[in-house]
Amino acid sequence: MTINYFTGSASSMNGEPMHTDLYPVILELRSVSQNYYRFVKQKYLYELGRYPEFMAASTTAFPLYSNINGGYGIFAGYSLVKSDTIYPGN
């Protein structure tokens, strides 16, 4: 499997070519319930509407997903597997 990612910092000294430092990563794979998936999807919309930005596209207020009757919140679950720390340079 190939994973393309870009995280870390880049620096250049005296106009020399860029030198990129890649940060180590930990991969986490989650197997989630449907409610959890819905919550995550909707959270992005919630955040978009949370702070409108002038001169940029903005959306109206959007609630977080809730599956609690008579209240707010989610009941959801997931299981996960976590990798060891990967050092991309090696």
Binding site: P52, E53, F54, M55, A56, A57, S58, T59
Partner: peptide, 8 residues
């Protein structure tokens, strides 16, 4: 239509 956006 994108509300409030100066572009797109």
């Amino acid at each position: 239509f994108t509300t409030g956006s100066i572009m797109n």
